[in-house]
Design a binder for these strands. Structure first.
Length: 415
RNA sequence: CGGGGCGUAGUGUAACGGCUAACAUGCUUGAUUUGGGAUCAAGUGACUCCGGGUUCGAAUCCCGGCGCCCCGACCA
């Protein structure tokens, strides 16, 4: 893509109502637009990143047998009354509204109920299970206080997978696999080093649920980490019986600020029982389906990457989720330079490399500053100087120094 | 939901109750420039969040509303 055709622009200053690093940088670089507190639109660059994160998660979910669907945001209250979750005293973050005929409906905060209800139509026999169903869907949560840019919004994109198993044993086997795919996801988006699986309390059918917590000062949680053992537990799980059970010495744990970037939960029969999701086993007996749920907030994950990987100059995207892989910067409006840059641009495009070409007639400093802010992994400069040398200047966003390379060397790096 | 702060061109700031609401940046045009947001010139851009009130006079004071940010609680 040519940068002059990109409708967003960068800015030097962040709006004064944004304090969080992720929102400041993402707005300055033109990735997102704030609509209201906790509600952000995703602009071309931002949507590209979000889609890449989505694809990584999709690959990992498909790899463990997930089937993708898309459920609805509008929800009939009757369904939620069956599990007791329509009441404001139970779930206080509902956005509720009414149809013209007066019927009360809600905007989904999560989808256990509707999916369980859908599956009642299709699950009859042990032969129909297990099932692993997921979606990417906008969730609405009427938070009392939105904060931290895109890390805690009132409307946000979430991947939620739900598992439907015949037995606890079958569920446990999948739960293990889900943990592996979750680790893969955090590694692939560049947060592997700073993301821990933590033991948390909760779940009516299992002692622990698990959260994935990324260490960053931008987080609002506290976790207790043993880096050597790669063990971490949540604050509320700092209890003698937990230490004993997990074989942890509390003195070896270090307190860290973190943000929850995912969670996995054993639900058991909590939803299948009240909603009547049952199957017949081999003996012809009716059994409740054994469930689990597995969530990742994509928008929060994107904000977390910015918090963790940015520097003073801007965002530093990992290749896996960068909006483009290569940022070509042509300096000046000299025809030879533009021709050379165009040739490279077309060559990389033809090889399937995603390229943003800054062909605008601006001063070098401005273009470099923009490039650093936007944070594309490889910057390639084409100028009178590089043409004279018969080479290209390449610099990785993660590195301070640029190097002059031949076209072959460049292609070897980025194709 | 409790406490605190705030609302002025697209963005960031300024303006004692008193002149045509200022400066920077952005944007437009032109000139000179071209390896880290350059310089100069001429332009452009604001019902000062909304509604009332006090006053000869309100961006400024008062009341109400709406919105935004932060701390806490809450949530995940």
């Amino acid at each position: 893509m040519k940068q002059s055709t990109l409708f967003t622009k960068t800015r030097k200053e962040a709006p004064k109502d944004e304090v969080s690093r992720n929102a400041q940088l993402l707005i300055r670089a033109g990735y997102i637009h704030k609509e209201m507190a906790g509600v952000y639109a995703f602009l071309p660059l931002g949507l590209k990143v979000l889609k890449k994160i989505e694809n990584i998660i999709r690959e990992e979910m498909d790899a463990i047998g997930g089937q993708e669907i898309s459920m609805t945001a509008l929800q009939d209250k009757g369904l939620w009354e069956k599990t007791g979750r329509w009441k404001d005293e139970v779930v206080d973050i509902w956005f509720k509204t009414k149809l013209k005929n007066g019927s009360e409906i809600g905007l989904a905060t999560t989808h256990e109920e509707p999916l369980t209800a859908i599956l009642k139509t299709y699950v009859d026999s042990f032969r129909d299970l297990p099932l692993y169903v997921y979606q990417f869907q906008v969730k609405f949560r009427n938070e009392t206080r939105a904060k931290s840019g895109i890390m805690r919004g009132r409307e946000f994109l979430m991947k939620d997978l739900y598992s439907f198993s015949r037995t606890k044993e079958e569920h446990d086997a999948f739960y293990e696999k889900a943990q592996i795919s979750y680790s893969n996801i955090y590694k692939r988006v560049g947060l592997g080093e700073v993301t821990y699986k933590t033991a948390a309390l909760g779940g009516s059918f299992s002692k622990y649920s698990h959260e994935y917590q990324t260490i960053t000062d931008a987080g609002e949680d506290l976790i207790y980490v043993n880096e050597e053992e790669q063990i971490a537990i949540n604050k509320e799980a700092m209890l003698p019986e937990v230490f004993a059970e997990m074989g942890i010495d509390p003195d070896d744990l270090e307190e860290k600020k973190s943000v929850e970037v995912g969670n996995i939960f054993t639900l058991g029969e909590k939803f299948s029982e009240p909603l009547g999701l049952i199957y017949k086993n081999e003996a012809g007996e009716s059994k409740n389906v054994f469930m689990g749920c597995y969530g990742i907030g994509l928008t929060r994950l994107m904000g977390t990457v910015v918090e963790v990987l940015s520097d003073e100059k801007g965002i530093v995207w990992p290749e896996s989720i960068a909006p483009f892989k290569v940022h070509i910067i042509s300096l000046g409006s000299d025809e030879k330079v533009l021709d050379e840059a165009k040739k490279l641009y077309e060559n990389l495009n033809s090889k399937g490399v995603e390229v943003l070409w800054d062909e605008r007639d601006l001063r070098p400093g401005e273009k470099f500053a923009d490039s650093d802010l936007i944070g594309i992994p490889y910057r390639v400069v084409v100028s009178a100087k590089t043409i004279e040398a018969g080479k290209f200047e390449v610099k990785q966003r993660t590195q301070a120094e640029a190097s002059m390379v031949t076209e072959e060397e460049l292609l070897a790096k980025v194709v």
